[in-house]
Design a protein around this nucleic acid. Structure first.
Lengths: 334, 334
DNA sequence: AAGCGGTTTCGAAGCGCTTCGACGGGTGAA
DNA sequence: TTCACCCGTCGAAGCGCTTCGAAACCGCTT
């Protein structure tokens, strides 16, 4: 194993000089620095990573991505990949935490200082992890905005605005009765922030437009889709606009409506809130507000990196929603 | 921060005794050990994790899960989750490596000793990471079996046998012309081990049964499915049996055949090699050989843990394939 | 009472690296 | 020419923990 003393010997300087030359924490003359860098390259030196002593950075970021029921796996994975990629660009690796009922994982990472910071996903309005995060035990960035975001750094799509945007779009097309097909019930029971916010926005916009609205959580699978479609048709016969916030349900729902004699977009206009690829590759390409998973992951990493280097960070960043029209929406009666 | 000396003072012993009491590397009397454990609990002590000195374990496992094009994301994620869960059961955390063209990630982890060992996924027959892994720079377990597995620890489903099993099943049902719809072409170009092995088994079994066979890689998406279905019908009019080794293509393919007037299982029997949930939730529940992702992940972790503790490990573990009949296969002409 | 084998615990060294204080040699001002 | 000063570098201490060798203690046997 190549150690810092080897590099020092090779470069003809002391170990401390090598340390400073590499960290930049003290000025080192160009000549020396170059010699050190050459030695590092020639010997293939890597700092004895992750270990060391107090004050030493581990160059590891933790990603708390709870794999709870009801979360859509590909989306989470998309986040994870973008986080890893962005982290590498900042010379960090990523520790994956998936167990995470509660604060255990984060607590352990904080206590052992395994990671320098943590990115927290699937944030709930009242999240049990918040006290720990607020305590500053571990620098953190949340993907998602809890009820009381003060003192925390958060990024998210503005789901409230996304909900409004969908309804606005449908209303503009002339639809007068809309339904939100949401995530599985457990997501709402957990008071997951983004899901709740979307509902708020949806409802507020429908009221503002004075159009009829209904909100229904829905589990996944063809059976659930079928049952919900039947129920909607029964309870809300005037229904012509649907907002779907449930990635895996898109195709089954279109099918289910089809079997009930309702075609998209002929009889029913459909809008989704989901990552673009999901919307674009559905049975009928679906007009959607994009959930920019990759961008959120990248931003979270940048924010955390800035935080770690002591820079100033904004409290909450809400990305404005953007709606992309595809084949699933049409003016009412068209 | 609570350190080992605090615990020692509290328990009225020396730091080294605490260390031994916790690691078990030397016998410590019950009385003392209990006192130490109590002190640990009372003070909330966590070993200053991941850091320390030579010989010190980081309690971290790396998971090299290259997110290459053509890999099916949910399956990889399933692996990842099972690996994390199993690793936690062994008191380890998991570092996620996804970039991984080549050996860079693993090399870095080995050099910095960021992780104690690595689990390698998506193994290719001639994998560029093999020399590094064989060098013993970092203890490893492969999920997948390369062309020359000697000196390595590998686990995988026996994909060759899986391919045979599918064909055997179709042959037994009376099918005399079968096609393998494979993963996207890039997977074969990379010489991904499991994909190649499945083709081998498929072809060998078809030859053994003296039935006509064809192998076609296939990209994802409805377009690709449609094109391939048309091509199969054209080139192999006698076709009545299809083996699919391409998770996201299952539904689109069934649809595509349907549009060509071929129903499953009426006109065409379909068998898949994929995780059970995928097969079970397809448009038509598909007879399948299960890819036991969770079990593979768990086994890999157990093997790595044993390796790390110096225990003996088998060279290669091939899980025997098991076929589950569902609605997609029927006797020919039934 | 001394000797002995075995068990249990302690003390001190040292891991690879960072960091603080200090040193040395050049420079410019006096 | 001397002195103060600064820049670049070095030496040594120390981080929290493990580990090795040795000391301390116990209960027996002689």
């Amino acid at each position: 194993m190549v150690k810092i003393t080897d590099v020092a010997r090779r470069a003809g300087v002391s170990p401390s000089t090598v340390s400073y030359a590499l960290s930049g924490k003290r000025p080192i003359s160009d000549a020396t620095r170059l010699r050190v860098q050459a030695a590092v390259r020639e010997l293939g030196y890597h700092a004895y990573g992750g270990r060391g002593v107090v004050g030493r950075r581990s160059k590891v970021l933790a990603l708390a991505a709870p794999m709870r029921s009801g979360v859509h796996v590909p989306v989470v994975t998309q986040f994870a990949v973008s986080v890893v990629t962005a982290a590498r660009a900042h010379d960090h690796d990523v520790l994956l935490l998936t167990q995470g009922e509660g604060e255990e994982d984060i607590g352990r990472v904080a206590a052992t200082r395994l990671a320098d910071g943590v990115i927290v996903m699937d944030v709930q309005l009242q999240d049990p992890r918040l006290p720990l995060l607020r305590s500053g035990a571990l620098p953190s960035v949340l993907i998602g905005v809890p009820a009381e975001p003060d003192g925390l750094t958060c990024v998210d799509l503005d789901f409230r605005a996304a909900g409004e945007l969908c309804v606005d779009h449908l209303a503009r097309l002339g639809h007068r009765a809309v339904a939100l097909v949401g995530s599985p019930p457990e997501v709402y029971v957990r008071r997951t922030a983004f899901a709740r916010r979307l509902v708020e926005g949806f409802t507020a916009a429908a009221d503002r437009h004075r159009i009829a609205s209904a909100v229904h959580p829905c589990g996944t699978g063809r059976g659930a889709a079928r049952a919900l479609a039947e129920r909607l048709v029964r309870e809300l016969p005037a229904l012509t606009g649907v907002v779907v916030h449930n990635e895996p349900l898109l195709d089954p729902l279109i099918d289910a409506f089809g079997q009930l004699g309702l075609s998209v977009p002929g009889d029913l206009s459909l809008t989704a809130v989901c990552p673009s690829p999901v919307a674009a590759s559905a049975r009928v390409p679906v007009t959607s507000v994009a959930v920019p998973s990759a961008e959120l992951g990248t931003r979270a990493v940048h924010l955390l990196a800035r935080k770690l280097s002591g820079g100033p960070v904004p409290g909450a960043t809400l990305l404005p929603p953007r709606l992309t029209e595809r084949a699933s929406t049409a003016p009412r009666g068209a």
